[in-house]
């Protein structure tokens, strides 16, 4: 048992550094996912057929492509094409854009949960389409989608482990654990602490979303 904790205490720098890298990756990707996801959701329900199609193409492309393909494209692919993209930009960008497709789908279904009468009422009161979206639809949509947004965030945190094993090779939790494993050959211990690291983040996210849910969710 003590051997288990020795691996952690002797390599606290690696594990701590890995935790911090993963945290920064998921926080950055989360912001991108929410912002881009909202824009794409707005496209998906726009009055113009072409904008709706554009949104649809985004969702179907980014949701159906393997994240590893996207990450490799965003880093090695772009670099070989002569675009000097950084590790962080590529990692956060690809994970964020990938997750945005899921966020957009969930937001769209949230918008559909807002009754049509409210939208008609708002438009007939003279609000513009953008105003209706911003003041009437989205605030309510965001509330109904807190639980699904939570499970997307958890999935995103788990997906972030792919960044470390891709060509981007940032020293995130999993990568750090592999470094420790290669140094010490303590495979079980290294992977167990990596798993604990991811659990720490996912559990924190779960608690945060539970809190938001209790505060804001309106049940219909």
């Amino acid at each position: 048992m003590s051997a288990l904790f020795d691996v952690l205490t002797e390599h606290l720098d690696e594990f701590g550094g890995g935790l911090w890298v993963t945290l920064r990756l998921v926080m950055g990707a989360f912001v991108i996912a929410i912002v881009v996801g909202t824009v794409v959701a707005a496209l998906r329900i726009a009055p113009s057929v072409w904008l709706r199609r554009l949104g649809g193409i985004y969702v179907e492309s980014f949701r159906n492509i393997p994240l590893l393909v996207l990450l490799t494209m965003a880093y090695a692919g772009l670099r070989r094409a002569g675009v000097p993209i950084g590790q962080w930009t590529a990692g956060i960008g690809a994970l964020g854009l990938y997750t945005a497709a899921y966020v957009a789908e969930v937001l769209r279904s949230g918008v559909f949960a807002v009754s049509k009468g409210q939208i008609e009422a708002s438009l007939s009161l003279g609000f513009s389409y953008a105003q209706t979206l911003r003041r009437i639809v989205l605030p309510q949509a965001f509330r109904t989608v807190i639980p699904p947004l939570g499970s997307i965030t958890i999935a995103m945190i788990k997906n972030s482990a792919i960044i470390g094993v891709s060509l981007i090779a940032l020293n995130d939790i999993l990568k750090s654990a592999r470094i420790v494993q290669a140094e010490t050959f303590k495979t079980e211990e290294a992977f167990l602490w990596a798993a604990v690291g991811y659990l720490l983040i996912t559990v924190t996210a779960t608690i945060a979303f539970r809190f938001l849910e209790r505060r804001y969710v309106i049940s219909r």
């Binding site: 788990k158 482990a161 792919i162 094993v165 592999r178 495979t187 992977f191 990596a194 798993a195 659990l199």
Partner: peptide, 15 residues
Amino acid sequence: RNLPLILVILYFAIA
């Protein structure tokens, strides 16, 4: 369900 899949794949590949 709550472990990152790639962590599990790597673990089995090594262990």
